[in-house]
């Protein structure tokens, strides 16, 4: 049984905001299936009593003082953008007011 279906690949592509061609969906379904099959080897290990490592260094409490440092020139910021209007960054008209 495949580990991932074309339908799941499409859902993931939507989450990642990638539009895929049918050919890409087919290819990724097959390639991701191979990779997911390979990583199944991790299921062999007993990990119940192992704690996860998210940071390799034992650093903690790294803070910066609450001081204002210079911002960028707003002209520089707007100039980076593919589309701008004045010093705003322009995007296609949004109809909905909530993250999707």
């Amino acid at each position: 049984m495949p580990r991932i279906t074309a339908e799941e690949v499409r859902v993931v592509a939507h989450l990642a905001r990638l539009s895929l061609t049918d050919e890409e969906v087919r290819l990724f379904t097959q390639q991701l299936d191979t990779i997911l099959d390979y990583v199944q080897q991790l299921q062999r290990l007993k990990t119940e009593s192992v704690s996860p490592t998210t940071h390799v260094l034992p650093l903690a409490n790294v803070l910066r003082p609450d001081q204002i440092t210079p911002s960028l020139d707003p002209e520089t910021v707007a100039a980076l953008a593919p589309q701008r209007k004045g010093r705003f960054i322009q995007v296609p008209k949004i109809i909905e007011t909530e993250p999707g």
Partner: peptide
Amino acid sequence: AKRRIMLGTYVLSHGYYDAYYARALKVRTL
């Protein structure tokens, strides 16, 4: 890049996080 974005998105997504990502963090410890 697309392949890795797809794989990474998948292993973090709801329902697969524990089987892949959470387990890999533990194996990293080992």
